[in-house]
Every structure is written in C-alpha cells, then in structure tokens.
Design a protein around this nucleic acid. Sequence first.
RNA 1: GUGGGCGUAGCUCAGUUGGUUAGAGUGCCAGGUUGUGGCCCUGGAGGUCGUGGGUUCGACUCCCACCGCUCACCCCA
Length: 426
Amino acid sequence: MSRVAATAVRGTRDVLPPESSSWQWAEGIARRLCAQYHFQEIRTPIFEGLEVFQRGIGETTDIVEKEMYVFQDRSERWLALRPEGTAGVVRAFLEHGLPAGPLPVKFFYLGPMFRYERPQAGRYRQFEQFGVEAFGSESPALDVEIISLGTAFLEALGISGWQVQLNTIGCPVCRPRYRQRLLELLRPRADQLCASCQSRLERNPLRVLDCKEESCRRVTADVPAPEEYLCSECAAHWQAVQEGLRAVGILYQVTPRLVRGLDYYTRTVFELIAPGLGSQDAVLAGGRYDGLVEEMGGPAVPGIGFAAGMDRLLLSLEQGGQGRAAEPELDVFVARAGDVPETAALQVVQELRKQGWRVDQDYLGRSLKAQLKAADRAGAQLTLVLGEAEWAQGQVVVRTMATGEQETVNRAVLTQAVTTRLQRTA
RNA sequence: GUGGGCGUAGCUCAGUUGGUUAGAGUGCCAGGUUGUGGCCCUGGAGGUCGUGGGUUCGACUCCCACCGCUCACCCCA
C-alpha cells in the first residue's frame, strides 16, 4: 500500500493534542467574553459567491486581486473560500432582513479563513479568526466597546506586552480632501517613492503612508496626519472615541500612518500588536465600516468590527513562554489484573461515566504494570484495579495515583468511594 | 510572485579531509517485580540519510535539478 499524500497542503496544518486543548481554551475565552459584552454567535458558510467578496472587500485590494481561493462548482457558478469574515456576515445581515429589525445587532464568529499567500511565521493559507461585528450605531461608545473587547481578549489570554494603535481615516465627506492634499504633496516627489508606492499613489495614496520602505518614509515624514483634515462630524467622533478609551482606562497610541488594507473602513481604525511574532505582529485589527452595508446593496447602516488571528495569538503565547500547562483530562483509569472478564470493566467504566467522571480503560490486555503506566501518562487521578482475587469477592482496589495509597472497597459502594476521593482532590 | 536558510529514527540533533554493519538523547515496547505507575538498570523495535540524476573504486558527505519546510519582502489576522 502506498500512502495517499505525505503532507498536509502547504499553508495548512494539523492541530493535535495537547495543542488542540489550547485552542479549545482560547475559543472558550472568546465565547465567554462575547457573552459578557453581549455579542451573539453567527455562523456563516465557509464559501460564498465570488461577488460577495469582490463587492465587500473591494476589487482593488490585494485579497481580491490575488489571494482568494476561487473555484467553480459543478454548475459552473463562481465561488470563493472566505478570505475574511466581515463580507459574509454583512451578506447574512442583509439576506435575513436584519436592518429592518431591532438595532444594533452584535455578532461574533469563530472559524477558518483562507488566503493564497506565501506562508511564514504566523501566516497560513488556512487560518483561524475570532471576529466581531456590530451594526446599526454610529456611537463612539460602540467603537470603545469593540476595542475594549479586543484588549480584554488579549488580557484574558495572558498576552503581555501588547499595545493598541489607533487612527482615524475620515469618511466620504472629508477623506477626498485629505487625499487631494496628499496627492499634492507626494506627486512632486513621486520619483523618490518605491516602485509599488509609485503605482499606488494615484489609486490609493493613503496606503503610501503605510509603506515601510525607508525612502517612502522620508517622503511622508512631514505629511500632515488625517486628523487635521477631518470634517466636523468625524472630528467630533474621533475626539469622543479617545475620551471614551481614556474613560475606561485603555492605553492607546495614535498612529497617523495606520491605514487598513481593506477598502471598506471609515473613521476609526485600530490594530493590536503583540510581541514574539516576527514581522507578522498584528494579532487583532479592525475598524469602522459605515459605508459597507450600503455598498453591498443594503440601506445605510453603519458597522464596526475586528478580527483576531487565533494562530498568531497562540503563537505569541508560546513564544513568550506563557503557554498553559496541560491539565489532566482523565479522572479514572480502569485496569484489570488476572482473569477478570472484560464486561466487568465495561460496567464499571459506564457506571462512573454516568456520574460525570472522565474514565478510560485498557483495551490491549496489557500487564498491570503497563496499565498503570498508561494511567499515569494520561494523568488519571485514580486507578481502579479489578483484581482476580478481589473481584471474586465483589471488591475493587482503588489506587490514588498521586500518593500511591490503595484501598479495597466493595463493588456496591465503588461509585461513592470514587466520588469522595475525586471531590477531595478537586 | 521575489530572495535567504534548511531537509539524517516519532521528536531534538550528531555524523569528523567522501571509506565498508549510520549514531546519541528523548519517546515507544518489553524485562528486572508469576498483580502495581512516576526514579534507576537491561534489552528490543524503529531510518527509501527529502526525491531523481551526476562525479567517484566507493556518496549521508561533492555537483545539478526538482520537491518540501522555514524565514523575510509584498500584504495581512
């Protein structure tokens, strides 16, 4: 027999225990926090019609231009694996007529996203995101709550050394003015920009600010910040967001160069960065997208959200040596010694599981020594030895693994004996 | 898409100017205890040396190609 394939597809990976338990733990934190902030789960498909992403994310973004997994199904409809969560959530929001219902609505999602990029540290082709989206309010208080949820998430995970970078990029009223001013300042010096910035100068001059190229940095060094060109509404919003953040004690750093890659953002944009990740250090990022719902064919409903890269967050924890110690996942191991029927173990195991305990047993007919070793390795608190001699008299040996103490108890009171011992250690 | 680094047991890695049966640690299995884990001792299983080709009397070692992994650019979570 030859193997089907030697390895997982490039950019994808397997999560095995005990790592999988770290994922459950982190996802549990996300869910708990969302409950506290009253965000409810939405589950949207992993693939959508291609146009959902083209319209939602923007035709000229890198994601749509070159990073999507696009394919045709058997009826030759064009589909794409979702490269991010927001577009699908907006589609669902509209499809179910939610703009006509009670607003605001606050959703969260958890699941895989797909982008065709060269993998590197903290970047995969299939990666896991935790995201939130809130529709129907322009209130700066919502901006503050979203950012607060983001920082609370990193706190709860135990990430240390993170920071919030914050900026505003205005709205359709004021951004054109800023854009115009940028063009006036940059055009004369276009020859000093890097190749990619020269090409994006006309298309999306704001992104030149974001460039890390030394030469571009010099050119943009003395360019005014977006906040100097805000319209009065955006300026008020921007002030209110900052006041709100200060009011709830969230430290942030205004980063005028922070421009997001997706077309749909307006006003508030932010990024949370964490240490230990090499160059992919943005672990959670988002912003306001007040024009997106309308852009996708719905009414003018404002929105705001963020997405967190779970792979990067867990990687950052590992790098910082803050990974959690694996907790034991087994309470009782049932072993047999001598001529004891398999059905005896089956019954004991089942009885204990009915009480809610986590129970496993030996399936290989191994020596008692080997069985105890297996119990130890699995982290069992107790091992029950069904010994031939004791079993014949209706008794079972209960061994407490931590101390090695053993006691022989009657079969009839076994459940109770196990329960009192486990509760004592719990 | 572009560039750098790396591919030897399940894992982490040695392998000396190319030389004959490719090693260690760890993990796994078993024995030391005819029914008792964690420490210790002993033994065992486990490798197409990434793949293909070339040079050579001889290649894990040198050369070429390909594949894969990885880091970085780009971009992004």
